[in-house]
Amino acid sequence: MKILLSGGTGFIGQAITKLLTAEEHEVYILTRNPDKHKGTSQVHYVEWLTENASPENTLPPIDAIINLAGESINNGRWSDEQKKKIYDSRMNATDEILRIIQLLDTPPSVLVNASAVGYYPPSETKIWTEQSTERGEGFLAQTVVDWEKKALLAEDHGVRVACARFGIILGKEDGALPSMALPYKLMAGGTVGSGRQWLSWIHHKDAARAVLFAIEESVEGPYNVTAPNPMRMKEFGETLGKVLNRPHWIPAPGFALKLALGDKSALVLEGQKVLPDVLQTKGFEFAFPTLNEALRDIYA
């Protein structure tokens, strides 16, 4: 297949590109600076979101689009300016994806659009699946709701849309895990907040595989990209400490994190127990279904 990918130079985008090329697909990565990247026979860089860019005029017939573009929620404190950047970057990139779809001679068969488990309300007791009708409140939930709503407009052009509600994606060098592991490496790891909040996680390789699975197996609508065994934060920290052979003993109280991170502290102090019902119902097999397996692979 020929697959168009936005956000391809980011953490999960790189994992997806690696998987797609290993599976002998051809990848067209949308970027503002194509000259900064060296293409190959399988990976091509295409300029977009600049004044003179017209990617629709240079692309071959595209089979599928993966849209991951957007300012990372891990970048900096969530000031009003940063919140606007997080929100606007997702809306603007998706608008451009819709414009490209409309102008292609033949629209792709599917759009897999990134989303997040922040769609669901935080809870220590409830379990959320794709069938859950409740949605969260606040900045992150509203961003996710609006992002999915905009992506679904591609259906007006005959494109199947799957919204990948990613959990916390675990990788050694990027994403949330390095900052979570650092206190343990400094012999200062411990329970974050109450420790009872849920953390719905997934190994980066399984996250990439779940995106390709959605393309190949006709997944439609929202689907949760999380491992089948979410963990409470206390157990997550204990498992991380064991894998790193470091103690789990110095707690990080919630009030201190709120002072340090502001609204962004909700990413670690609040959580959702999210299960990947759609993936499992369609037969997706996780390479790393448990946290111990995932962390031991990452830190092997």
Rank of each mutant, 00 (worst) to 15 (best):
P107L: 04
K149L: 02
S109Y: 08
N92H: 14
V43M: 06
F255Y: 14
N113P: 03
D80M: 01
V219S: 01
N224W: 06
W147N: 01
I65A: 07
L4C: 11
E124K: 13
L259C: 01
I202E: 02
R32C: 10
L19Y: 05
Y119E: 00
L291G: 00
D146C: 07
D88L: 13
G70W: 00
Y119F: 15
H204C: 10
L291R: 03
P183W: 12
K234W: 00
P34E: 11
I97R: 04
Y28S: 08
V243D: 02
Y299A: 12
V225Q: 07
E26Q: 14
R99S: 12
I86A: 08
L103Q: 15
I62Y: 04
I62H: 03
V274R: 01
G189H: 02
P178Y: 08
D156K: 15
R90D: 07
A300N: 11
A287S: 14
V274Y: 01
V112L: 11
N292G: 06
P61E: 14
G70N: 07
I29H: 04
K83I: 09
R296W: 02
G7L: 01
K149H: 11
I97A: 06
Q82R: 15
H25P: 10
D174M: 12
A207V: 02
H157A: 15
E235M: 12
Q197I: 01
K150T: 07
L170Y: 10
E56P: 01
K172P: 04
Y223M: 05
A181F: 11
G70C: 10
S54T: 14
P34Y: 09
V110N: 01
E47T: 07
L267H: 06
G175K: 05
R160V: 11
T191Q: 12
